[in-house]
Design a protein around this nucleic acid. Sequence first.
DNA 1: CGGCGCCTCACCCGTTCGGGTGAGGGACGT
DNA 2: ACGTCCCTCACCCGAACGGGTGAGGCGCCG
Lengths: 211, 211
Amino acid sequence: MTRNPRTVVVADDHPIVLSGMRLLLSGSRFFEFAGEARTGAEAILRCDQLRPDVLLLDLRLPDLPAATICQRVKERQPDLAIVILTAHPEEMAVRQCLKAGASACLFKDTGEQQLLSALMQVVHGRAVLDPRIAGAMLPRRANGGRPEGSLTDRERDVLMMIARGLTTQEIGEQLGLSPNTIKSHSRALFTKLGAHNRVQALAVAQERGLI
Amino acid sequence: MTRNPRTVVVADDHPIVLSGMRLLLSGSRFFEFAGEARTGAEAILRCDQLRPDVLLLDLRLPDLPAATICQRVKERQPDLAIVILTAHPEEMAVRQCLKAGASACLFKDTGEQQLLSALMQVVHGRAVLDPRIAGAMLPRRANGGRPEGSLTDRERDVLMMIARGLTTQEIGEQLGLSPNTIKSHSRALFTKLGAHNRVQALAVAQERGLI
DNA sequence: CGGCGCCTCACCCGTTCGGGTGAGGGACGT
DNA sequence: ACGTCCCTCACCCGAACGGGTGAGGCGCCG
């Protein structure tokens, strides 16, 4: 319900990424490109100055290790969400960042919509790990090795039926379940997709190639 | 179903736009950033060299009028789709470009997903005009031979915004209209599409290739 | 001019959705 | 055995949606 855009600071030594992110964020009504940094020191400074909601942090900056930056920034702003961006999966560095308070880790080849949706999830308090690194990151887990943030079987069922234009009631009949159950699954998948309603969920799912 | 990605050449004198487009296109499995140009002459050259499917063309380039570029390029490659990008709505220039064979005109503040969706439509042979310029572009016609049962401009606008996951309220704000008006358009297009709700409308529109 | 289509907006009403909370049972791994 | 996750279902409530009806303005065509 918070209609104010979340402010984002982007820290990356590649200008092309900065401009790309600026464009990307300016295209979303949910986010605002608040500032940029090309070094770790600058990133810490910008966060102090601008008090953003999110720090988008390149894993490799010329001056400081990303984990150090995470730690420093988190000391000052525990509520800041940190999203790590990396070109190559460097397990150790990523693990250290997560330990230091980062909320998410994404690859630089992540699609725009996925990136936005991941940011959306992060500002809603969820952690997001790129599937390609999530496996290495989480050898544990009680569930069937399902990647963080992906949908359960039931949620996928419901998503498909939503995509076909069925109402909650109809989906319940189709699956032989109570409408309440369908609503539960809907809510769950909306949260996972960072959507506020079923149409947004479809938009996100489409971008992710889920449907 | 898995087609080859459509190749795109981007012509713009703002590097930031080029890099933004490169990032955007590389995030879509439907398109490939084939090349870039900073001048009109370079754009024509690149199209000759690369034979792309789409030319994304800034309305204002330092050396040549966009309409001239459209004409030159179309002479050599009639099948090339040209999409005009503009920061400000310059009616005359846009009109000339369309007359010279451009397939679409979009504003530079167009969101990523809208832009991609517009490109998608263009490569499928449809014309796309930004709503803000479409009005000025088409002062003609009470019903300019619109096929029976097809959507009006406004209805299409609303449909697109519905597809992006916006609520009735948000669409109204976006278009500067009352929510009541949006509801009227929604009802109209639902009826035309034989849908009972917006999700069904999207399903139908998708089947018919409207989006 | 008069009709028609489109765009605009209003009000009312019932249904559906989205969000919050709580809870029980089953499956599985530690 | 315990924890965790998933699936199931319930109730409540406010917001959004879908449908009906009516109406004024505008532009175009006959």
